[in-house]
Amino acid sequence: VSSEIYQWVRDELKRAGISQAVFARVAFNRTQGLLSEILRKEEDPKTASQSLLVNLRAMQNFLQLPEAERDRIYQ
């Protein structure tokens, strides 16, 4: 997982004009609270716990989908 993931998520929230709650639900089936905590802490993926890595990997995989497909999912 790239250490850029945190910025990618922030950029996607702005680009798509969606809330953290929507992104958390569709990208990795978690709550806004968890996403907020992940973004606030910005732990280095190289030293992250296994559970954090699973979530970061799910977010990264979601962000690799084509933009149009992500936008459809947000609706």
Rank of each mutant, 00 (worst) to 15 (best):
Glu12Gln: 03
Asp11Tyr: 11
Leu56Thr: 01
Val26Ile: 07
Phe62His: 05
Thr47Glu: 11
Leu34Lys: 13
Tyr6Thr: 00
Leu56Met: 03
Leu53Glu: 09
Ala21Ile: 06
Val54Tyr: 11
Ala16Pro: 03
Ile73Cys: 09
Gln60Asp: 14
Ile5Phe: 01
Leu34Ala: 11
Tyr6Val: 02
Gln20Ala: 07
Arg72Tyr: 07
Ser2Gln: 10
Val1Met: 08
Ala24Asn: 09
Thr31Val: 02
Arg15Phe: 00
Pro45Ser: 02
Ala68Cys: 12
Ala58Asp: 13
Ser19Thr: 15
Trp8Arg: 15
Ser2Tyr: 07
Arg10Trp: 15
Thr47Pro: 03
Arg70Pro: 01
Tyr74His: 02
Leu63Ala: 05
Thr31Gln: 13
Lys14Pro: 01
Val1Arg: 00
Val54Gly: 12
Arg40Met: 12
Gly33Met: 12
Ala68Pro: 14
Arg30Tyr: 05
Asn61Leu: 08
Arg15Met: 01
Thr31Phe: 03
Glu37Cys: 05
Ala16Ile: 03
Pro45Phe: 04
Leu39Asp: 00
Gln32Lys: 11
Asp11Thr: 13
Ala27Trp: 04
Ala48His: 01
Ile18Glu: 00
Leu53Pro: 04
Gln32Tyr: 06
Lys41Met: 08
Pro66Cys: 04
Asn29Tyr: 05
Lys41Ser: 08
Leu56Arg: 02
Val9Leu: 07
Gln60Leu: 06
Gln20Lys: 11
Leu56Asn: 04
Arg15Cys: 07
Met59Phe: 08
Ile38Arg: 00
Gly17His: 15
Pro45Gly: 04
Glu42Asp: 04
Val9Cys: 09
Leu13Trp: 00
Arg30Val: 04
Ala16Trp: 00
Val54Cys: 13
Ile73Trp: 08
Ser2Thr: 15
Ser19Tyr: 01
Arg57Gly: 09
Gln64Met: 13
Arg70Tyr: 00
Leu63Val: 06
Gln75His: 14
Glu37Leu: 05
Ala16Arg: 03
Arg25Glu: 13
Arg25Ile: 05
Tyr6Lys: 00
Glu37Ala: 10
Gln64Ile: 09
Arg57Ala: 10
Arg70Ile: 00
Ala27Ser: 10
Val22Trp: 04
Pro66Tyr: 00
Ala58Gly: 05
Glu4Thr: 13
Gln64Glu: 14
Leu63Gln: 05
Ala21Pro: 11
Gln7Ser: 15
Gln32Ala: 13
Val22Asn: 07
Pro45Met: 03
Ser3Glu: 14
Gln20Asn: 09
Asp11Arg: 10
Glu69Ser: 08
Gln75Gly: 14
Ser51Arg: 09
Glu37Trp: 04
Ala21Ser: 13
Leu35Arg: 02
Ser19Leu: 02
Ala68Gln: 12
Pro45Asp: 00
Asn55Trp: 05
Leu53Gln: 11
Gly33Arg: 11
Arg10Met: 05
Asp44Ile: 03
Arg10Cys: 07
Ser51Ile: 06
Asp71His: 02
Glu4Ile: 07
Ala58Leu: 11
Gln50Phe: 10
Leu63Gly: 01
Glu43His: 07
Asn61Ala: 13
Phe62Gln: 01
Ala48Pro: 02
Gly33Ala: 13
Asp71Met: 04
Ala21Gln: 11
Glu12Arg: 01
Ile18Gln: 02
Gln50Ile: 10
Met59Arg: 02
Arg30Pro: 02
Ile5Ser: 01
Leu63Pro: 04
Arg40Gly: 08
Glu69Gln: 14
Glu37Asp: 15
Glu69Asn: 09
Leu52Glu: 09
Leu63Arg: 06
Arg40Glu: 14
Glu67Val: 11
Ile5Cys: 05
Gln50Pro: 14
Asp44Phe: 02
Val26Arg: 03
Gln7Arg: 15
Val26Trp: 02
Glu43Ala: 09
Tyr74Phe: 04
Asp44Met: 06
Phe28Arg: 05
Glu37Tyr: 06
Ser19Lys: 06
Met59Thr: 04
Glu12Thr: 03
Lys46Phe: 08
Lys14Gly: 14
Thr47Ser: 11
Ile73Gly: 10
Gly33Asp: 11
Phe28Tyr: 05
Asn55His: 13
Gln60Asn: 10
Glu4Ser: 10
Ser49Glu: 11
Asn29Ala: 05
Asn55Phe: 08
Arg30Gln: 07
Arg40Tyr: 11
Leu34Glu: 14
Ala68Trp: 11
Ala24Asp: 10
Trp8Gln: 15
Glu42Asn: 10
Arg10Ser: 06
Leu13Gln: 03
Leu39Ser: 01
Val26Gly: 10
Ala68Thr: 12
Glu4Asn: 15
Arg15Trp: 01
Gln32Glu: 14
Gln75Ser: 14
Ser51Asn: 14
Glu43Lys: 09
Ala16Phe: 06
Asn61Trp: 04
Arg10Gln: 13
Phe23Gly: 02
Ala16Cys: 08
Gln60Gly: 05
Val1Ala: 02
Lys14Leu: 14
Ser49Asp: 12
Arg25Asp: 07
Ala16Val: 10
Arg10Asp: 05
Glu37Pro: 03
Thr31Trp: 03
Lys41Ile: 10
Ala24Tyr: 03
Ser49His: 08
Val22His: 07
Ile5Leu: 12
Gly33Glu: 15
Thr31Ser: 12
Arg70Trp: 00
Ala27Thr: 10
Gln60Met: 08
Ile38Tyr: 11
Pro66Lys: 08
Val9Ile: 15
Ile73Lys: 07
Ser49Trp: 04
Ile18Met: 05
Phe62Pro: 02
Ser36Lys: 12
Glu12Pro: 00
Arg15Glu: 03
Phe23Pro: 00
Ala27Asn: 00
Leu56Phe: 01
Leu34Gly: 09
Arg70Thr: 00
Asn29Gly: 08
Phe23Thr: 00
Gln7His: 15
Ala48Ser: 08
Leu63Ile: 09
Glu43Thr: 09
Gly33Phe: 09
Gln64His: 12
Glu67Asn: 10
Met59Trp: 04
Ile73Ser: 13
Ser51Gly: 12
Arg72Phe: 12
Leu52Val: 12
Arg15His: 04
Val9His: 02
Gln20Glu: 09
Ala48Asp: 02
Glu67Arg: 10
Glu43Pro: 08
Asp44Tyr: 04
Arg40Gln: 15
Leu39Pro: 04
Leu56Ala: 00
Ser19Trp: 01
Phe23Trp: 05
Asn55Arg: 07
Arg70Asn: 04
Lys41Trp: 06
Pro45Gln: 02
Leu65Trp: 06
Arg10Ala: 09
Asn55Ala: 07
Thr47His: 14
Glu67Ala: 10
Met59Tyr: 03
Phe62Arg: 01
Thr31Glu: 09
Asn61Met: 09
Tyr74Gly: 01
Lys41Gly: 06
Gln50His: 11
Ala58Trp: 04
Thr47Gly: 10
Glu43Val: 11
Pro45Val: 11
Gln75Val: 09
Glu42Thr: 04
